[in-house]
């Protein structure tokens, strides 16, 4: 067991974890952050995407011990003071989700994408979301949502 201390969605936590424990399992099983989900076992689907120190990572591909001393933001920590993040709002407005299982990862990746590039082209959006799979929407409305969020200045404000 290894002692880790980190900040998750603004709250400090400290736990003993097995060195092999994945960050996503730590978030879900130890912290109850079940907003972040697991969709595959090969780091392909991106459903578990969170931010580590403000940059997107697939939390199935990070060990909990690697997050020691760092700051993690999950989908549950994205809205501030009851206000949805512009990307969350854009996903709702553009019907960019159906079953919603990929949505937490897709939103976290979209936020990261806009942080990197506040005004992406459609192609840049599509390439930027390539690591996140969605089986419901055909991506059409997800792309529209990211465009809508960009035009609302989501990249600049985040």
């Amino acid at each position: 067991m290894t002692r880790i201390s980190l900040k998750v969605d603004g709250a400090s936590c400290s736990d003993d974890v097995e060195p092999r424990m994945l960050l996503v399992h730590y978030l879900r099983e130890r912290l109850g952050k079940t907003g972040t989900v697991i969709g595959c076992d090969t780091s392909n689907c991106g459903a578990c995407t969170v931010h580590l120190d403000g940059k997107s990572v697939k939390s199935c591909n990070v060990l909990a011990v690697q997050a020691d001393g760092h700051e993690v933001t999950t989908i549950e920590g994205l809205a501030q003071d009851g206000e949805l993040h512009p990307v969350q709002k854009a996903f709702h407005d553009c019907h960019a989700l159906q079953c919603g299982f990929c949505t937490p990862g897709m939103i976290m990746q979209s936020v990261d994408l806009l942080n990197e590039n506040a005004n992406p082209s459609e192609e840049e959006i599509r390439l930027g979301l390539e690591g996140n799979l969605c089986r419901c929407t055909g991506y059409h409305n997800i792309v529209k949502a990211v465009q809508a969020a960009a035009s609302e200045g989501a990249g600049a404000s985040a």
Binding site: R28, G32, K33, T34, G35, T36, V37, I38, T74, I75, E76, L78, A79, L84, Q88, F91, H92, D93, H95, L97, G100, F101, T103, P104, I107
Partner: peptide, 21 residues
């Protein structure tokens, strides 16, 4: 109409079976 279902799904307040403890 924008969907009623979305709020819980875009904020991570979901009830997937695997969430149950």
């Amino acid at each position: 109409r924008k969907r009623k279902e979305d709020q819980r799904l875009i904020t991570g307040r979901t009830k997937w079976t695997d969430n149950i403890q």
